[in-house]
Simulated scan of single mutants.
Amino acid sequence: MKTYKVSLFVLFIIVLTFLSFRSTDEKTAVDKFIVVLDAGHGGKDPGKHSKYGYKEKDIALKVTLQVGAILEKNPNIKVVYTRTTDVFIELKDRPKIANNANADLFVSIHCNAHHTEASGTETYVLAVGNANQNLEVAKAENEVIYLEDDYEKHYKGFDPNSPESFMSILFSQEEYTDQSILLASLIEKNFTSKYNRKSRGVKQASLWVIHQTAMPSVLIETGFVTNREEGAYLNSEKGQNEISTAIANAILEYKHTLDGNVGDFVFKGTTAPATKTAEVPTTSKPTETKPIVNPSIAYKVQIAATSKALDTKPNNFKGLQNITREKEEGLFKYFYGNTSNYETIKLLEEEAVKKGYKSCFIVAFKDGKKISLTDALKTTAN
């Protein structure tokens, strides 16, 4: 009997230990920064193609897999793919994959085409406030709908060729507009500053693939397959290495901007010049940490953006107090806190995240005008 009780006790301890490890593993998985990478087109949908034999679906997949391989080197990032082979994924299913993964970012990778020798990169975010902006791009990327079975049922009468059809999706991503633009800007910056690519800029368009995602989302046009020189670059190992490195580093920069960190892991690539990051001091004396304070800079935590004005009382914002509201480009944006101390605003950001505002981020103002967080910290340092 005694032996039986001891065996039960040992079994109980083993089960508790297993559950503890399992709980820790699950928590670690949840805490990871989840990036969904979407290789455009695939299978029966070749996407853009050129007389030189370059196919968008092939280039997009190779670049996407390389971006993922780079990001997966960071233990704090989990990568989810919409496709890893040459298969056809319906447009409506791509954002579903991201939403089901509870992703922090959705990045769709494509190639461009034109009847001229146009060239250059473009990164798109969802249009808010102007459905007709870049309508031709939206039509081209959305027309894959016609290749799907029962598309009339799935898209409820949405017509990729009709400007009116875009009106229903104007505000679906408005909460994430600023973050999407931040990531898009970092991607274009990496293309130009690191690899001397021609950038056509950050643009807005009503793209179905990013309008249903419940997280910051961008669509990258990595270049024109119809341009003889650029098409060859996109199809080359060197070009794909550089493009994937630029995108991955932009994602890492974006994550660290949200984290408020400096000098994280940055992939240097096989054919690319080294990316400059903040260096850790190598002096033998410990450096003294001083509060990052500048009276001319005001830091706030943006927690939401809506098309309709909400009262800033705490019960509208999960109990948070000191909420302010500002109208910008047709949207009402809501901010938590107001301080010149960067360390303080990071604590407030953590508090907002705990309250459920997982997509919140720090913004900076100087003399009442919004400036980039990077410029604010530089101003403080100087």
Rank of each mutant, 00 (worst) to 15 (best):
K5M: 11
L11C: 12
F12M: 11
R22V: 08
R22M: 07
A29V: 06
D31V: 05
K32C: 08
K32Y: 09
V36R: 02
A39S: 09
G47D: 01
S50Q: 05
S50M: 07
S50D: 07
Y54G: 00
E56Y: 10
V63D: 01
T64R: 03
L65P: 04
L65E: 03
V67H: 00
P75K: 08
I77T: 03
R83H: 09
T85D: 14
V87F: 00
F88V: 12
L91A: 02
N102E: 15
N102V: 10
A103M: 02
C111E: 05
N112F: 06
A118Y: 10
A118C: 08
T123C: 03
N132S: 15
L135F: 15
E136S: 15
E141L: 14
E143S: 12
V144K: 06
H154D: 11
S168K: 13
I169D: 05
E174K: 07
T177F: 02
L183V: 03
L186K: 05
L186I: 06
F191N: 01
F191C: 02
Y195S: 11
N196Y: 14
R197G: 05
S199N: 07
Q204A: 06
V209P: 04
V218E: 00
E221Q: 05
E229K: 14
G231P: 04
A232Y: 11
S236P: 14
T245G: 06
A246Q: 00
A248Q: 02
I251R: 00
L258H: 02
D259N: 14
D259W: 07
D259L: 13
V266F: 07
F267A: 00
K285S: 12
E288R: 10
V301P: 00
D311E: 15
T312S: 11
K313S: 15
F317M: 08
Q321L: 08
K327I: 10
E328F: 05
E329S: 14
G330D: 05
F335P: 00
S340N: 14
I345S: 02
K346N: 13
E351A: 13
E351V: 09
F361N: 03
V363M: 04
A364F: 00
D375Q: 13
T379E: 14
A381F: 11
A381H: 10
